[in-house]
Each structure stands twice: as structure tokens, then as C-alpha cells.
């Protein structure tokens, strides 16, 4: 191994990758949510469909898609490697353990939360990304774009999907509440002056982003 692979296969190196990919995925969430907010426009899905058409065809976006996939893959791969290593680090567990007295639930269950998010991601891709990218969407009359909006409406009339989406967003919120500030810690970006802000910002970010996403299925289920 050369120094580069050695660095990023060390425990700290892998945590650094987790942090960088995690923060990158956070930025994706922002972009994604901003785009999705077009769903709330009372225009029969026009803005949303234009937006999704843009996302599907813009070459920069398409390139970034690969980066995004890589981000997910590295994040997931390192999570698996680290989890396996962490489990191996304690082959015999405690008969009686009270971790709730020294740490938060979310910080101890990032793997579980991440798995929920992964399941959600697959369902989500199946619901929207696959039809949008690989055909299966109806066209919109007199327009160049396809009607992803109608898929959204359809999906979010299904209470199982709505439930899954909302639960997943709660999981995501908890994942981010720990993950956001944790990323800064892993990168060594701590400072007496800024760390309290990062922690508060991270909390607000996690809650707001996930509220925003969760509002969409609820909105369609109850109001559309």
C-alpha cells in the first residue's frame, strides 16, 4: 500500500472519508430539497416537471450524478468496513450495559439509521429515479418534458409510501443531528469560538431539511 491508500484505510482516514462524503451528501440534500419545493407550487406540476427535466438532461448535473453516486458508495462502503471493525473490536459484549448514561441514542445507532435511509433510498429511486431515467413516465401534453409530477401525486396517495417517507426522514434527521457536527470533529475542525455554532447550526439544519422533505408526502397525502 502506498501512503495514500494507507491513510484512507486507517480508522481515522476512513472517518475522514465518512465526514467528507457525509458533508457532501448534506449539500446534495439542500439542492434536492430546494428543487423539490417546486412541488408546492399550485401549477399542476409544471415547475417541478421542468426542474426534473433539467436535472435529467443538464450535462453538469449528469456529471455530478456520478460524483454523488461515488459519495454514497464511499459513505456506505466505509460505514460497512468501520462497523465490521468496530464489532470485531469487542467480540465479547457486556452482560449489563447502560450506554444511555454516557451518550445519545442517535450517536450510537448511526448504522441502524443509515440502513433505514439506505432502504428508503432504494425505494425512492425505484419510485422516481428509475421511471424518470429509464422510461415509464407519461409525457406532458404540449411540452418537451415528461410528467414526473403525476408519479409523485400517485405515490403519495399511498399511505405505506407516505409512512415510509416520513419515518425515513425522522431517521435522516437523527442521522444528521449526530453526523453533521460529528463530521467537523472527525476533520479536526473544532474551535472554542465556532464549534458551539456548528453544533447548533447542525441541529437546525438536520431538523429543517428533514421537515422540508417530510412535508412533501404529507402535503400530497392530505391536501392534494
Amino acid at each position: 500500500m502506498n501512503w495514500f491508500t494507507k491513510t484512507f484505510s486507517s480508522t481515522i482516514g476512513r472517518k475522514i472519508i465518512m465526514s467528507i462524503t457525509g458533508l457532501f451528501l448534506c449539500s446534495f440534500l439542500v439542492v434536492h430539497l430546494v428543487g423539490n419545493l417546486t412541488l408546492f407550487r399550485q401549477d399542476g406540476g409544471e415547475a417541478f416537471n421542468i426542474y426534473s427535466h433539467f436535472m435529467a438532461n443538464n450535462p453538469i448535473i449528469r456529471t455530478m450524478e456520478f460524483v454523488l453516486v461515488a459519495g454514497f458508495l464511499f459513505h456506505i462502503y466505509d460505514a460497512i468496513v468501520l462497523t465490521r471493525r468496530n464489532k470485531a473490536a469487542r467480540p465479547v459484549g457486556y452482560a449489563n450495559s447502560h450506554p444511555e448514561q454516557n451518550s445519545t441514542w442517535s450517536s450510537r445507532n448511526m448504522g441502524l439509521l443509515g440502513t433505514i435511509i439506505l432502504v428508503f433510498l432504494l425505494v425512492h429511486l425505484w419510485n422516481f429515479f428509475v421511471p424518470a431515467r429509464f422510461g415509464g413516465l407519461e409525457g406532458v401534453p404540449n411540452a418537451e418534458y415528461l410528467n414526473l409530477y403525476s408519479e409523485v401525486v400517485l405515490a403519495f396517495k399511498n399511505p405505506i409510501y407516505v409512512g415510509l417517507y416520513v419515518i425515513s426522514m425522522i431517521a435522516l434527521a437523527y442521522h444528521l443531528i449526530h453526523g453533521f457536527q460529528s463530521a467537523f470533529q472527525s476533520l479536526g475542525l473544532t474551535h472554542k469560538k465556532y464549534t458551539p455554532f456548528i453544533q447548533k447550526f447542525g441541529y437546525a439544519f438536520s431538523v429543517l431539511i428533514c421537515l422540508g422533505f417530510a412535508a412533501i408526502p404529507l402535503y400530497f397525502f392530505f391536501f392534494v
Binding site: 472517518k15 454516557n102 451518550s103 460529528s182
Partner: peptide
């Protein structure tokens, strides 16, 4: 020191803060 820490088979840090709390 980090290399040796990894060789010894300790786990990675999840930033749970349990260590400092205890």
C-alpha cells in the same frame, strides 16, 4: 501512534462522546 492503535485492534471513533463522559 495511530498506526499502532489500529494494529492493536481498537475500533474507530464514532464521536459518541461516551469516552469523555466516563
Amino acid at each position: 501512534m495511530v498506526a499502532q492503535m489500529d494494529i492493536e485492534g481498537f475500533g474507530a471513533c464514532s464521536n459518541t462522546g461516551a469516552c469523555a463522559a466516563e
